[in-house]
Write a protein that binds this DNA or RNA. Structure first.
Lengths: 118, 118
DNA sequence: GTAACGTACAACCAAATGGTTTTACATATG
DNA sequence: CATATGTAAAACCATTTGGTTGTACGTTAC
C-alpha cells in the first residue's frame, strides 16, 4: 500500500522530473534497463554529468541501480511514476470538489434574494 | 486541444511543483481564489518571497493572476494540472507497453530453443 | 489631500544545480 | 600480470534558486 510521501520526497520527485535529460533517462530505462555508460553515450555531456543525473533520479526513487559485475544496471521504477500521478490526482480531486460545490449551489432552491424579481 | 508542451515548459511545470509552499499555494487557489497578500499571510516568510513563488507558478501556467482594484486575484489553473498528468501518463504508457511486450513473449509458441527438452 | 494598503521590483546573499576535469578503484580481458 | 573498462567521488566553477530588505508606485480609505 503506497505509503504517503513526505514533502521532501515529493520535492525530490518533481525536482528530478524537472530536467529533460533526466526525463529521457527515465523513459529509456522504463523501456529497457541500461548501464550508466550506455546512458552516458546517448547524451552530449560528460560521463560524470550523466552519472549525477542518474544519482538524482535514484534518490528520488524514479530509477533503481543494481550492480552487475563492474556495471550498474539502471532501471526505471513504475511505482515512483504511480506515486507522482497520485500527487497530481490529489490536485484534480480538490478542483473537482470545488466544481461540485458550485454545481450544488446552482442547483439549490433559489435563494431569498430575488433571483428573478421584476 | 491541449497543445503539446516543449521541454522547457515541462521543466518549468515540474520545477514549480517541486516546492511544498508552491504546491500549497496551488491547492489553496484551486479551492478558492486568493490575493497575494492573503497567501503571504498564510506562510512564515516575507511578502516578497511569497510573491516570487506566485510568479514561478504563474510562469509555469499553474496559476493565473488577475488584477482587481489594487489587488491581484490568484487562481489555480486546472488545465495545467491536466497537462502535468498527461506527461506522467506518457511514462506509464511506455512502461505498460513493455509489460505487454513481455506478456506477448511469454504467450508465444514455445521458441525453437528447447524450452522443455529432456 | 494624506495616509494606509497591495503590489512590483531591485539589490543582495547563501545554498543548491548542472556542468566540468581529475583522481582512484574494482572488475574484466589479453 | 598488465591493461582497459565502468563507476565513484572530489574539487572546482558559473548560474539559478529561495530567501531577505528596501524603495517606488497605483489604489483605496479617511
Amino acid at each position: 500500500m503506497l505509503t504517503d510521501l513526505t514533502d521532501a520526497e515529493v520535492d525530490r520527485m518533481f525536482r528530478a522530473l524537472a530536467d529533460a535529460t533526466r526525463r529521457d533517462i527515465v523513459r529509456r530505462t522504463l523501456v529497457a534497463e541500461a548501464t550508466v555508460s550506455e546512458l552516458a553515450g546517448a547524451y552530449d555531456m560528460s560521463f560524470a554529468a550523466v552519472q549525477k543525473h542518474v544519482a538524482v533520479l535514484e534518490e528520488a526513487g524514479l530509477v533503481t541501480k543494481q550492480p552487475r559485475g563492474r556495471e550498474r544496471m539502471v532501471r526505471g521504477n513504475p511505482d515512483a511514476i504511480a506515486r507522482a500521478q497520485k500527487c497530481l490526482d490529489a490536485f484534480e480531486v480538490i478542483w473537482r470538489a470545488r466544481v461540485d460545490r458550485l454545481d450544488a449551489l446552482l442547483a439549490e432552491e433559489p435563494p431569498s434574494v430575488h433571483p428573478s424579481d421584476s
